Amino acid sequence: MIYKQNYFYLCKTPLSAEGPEDVEIITRADNSEDFPRVFKEYEELRSHAFNEDKLYSVVRADDVYDLIRTGTKEEAKEAAFEQAQQEIITNLQHRVMQDEDKDAKAILREVHGVEG
Rank of each mutant, 00 (worst) to 15 (best):
Y3M: 03
Y3G: 04
Y7M: 04
Y7E: 00
L10C: 03
C11I: 01
C11N: 01
C11E: 02
S16K: 10
A17R: 00
G19H: 05
E21L: 11
E24F: 09
I25A: 12
I25N: 08
I26P: 03
A29V: 12
D30L: 10
F35C: 04
P36N: 14
R37H: 08
F39N: 07
E41T: 12
L45K: 14
R46D: 03
R46M: 12
R46V: 05
F50D: 11
N51H: 07
E52I: 07
D53H: 15
D53T: 12
K54C: 14
K54T: 01
K54M: 15
L55K: 13
L55P: 01
S57E: 15
S57G: 01
V58M: 12
V59N: 04
V59A: 08
R60V: 01
D63R: 11
D66R: 15
I68S: 00
I68W: 00
I68P: 06
I68E: 14
I68Q: 06
G71Y: 05
G71N: 08
T72H: 02
K73N: 10
E74D: 11
E75V: 08
A76M: 02
F81L: 00
A84C: 13
Q86H: 11
I88R: 08
I89T: 05
T90H: 08
L92P: 10
Q93D: 09
H94R: 05
V96F: 13
M97Q: 10
M97V: 06
M97L: 11
Q98E: 15
K102A: 12
K102V: 13
K105T: 07
K105Y: 09
K105N: 13
A106Y: 09
R109L: 14
R109T: 12
V111T: 14
G113Y: 13
V114P: 01
V114G: 02
V114A: 01
G116N: 02
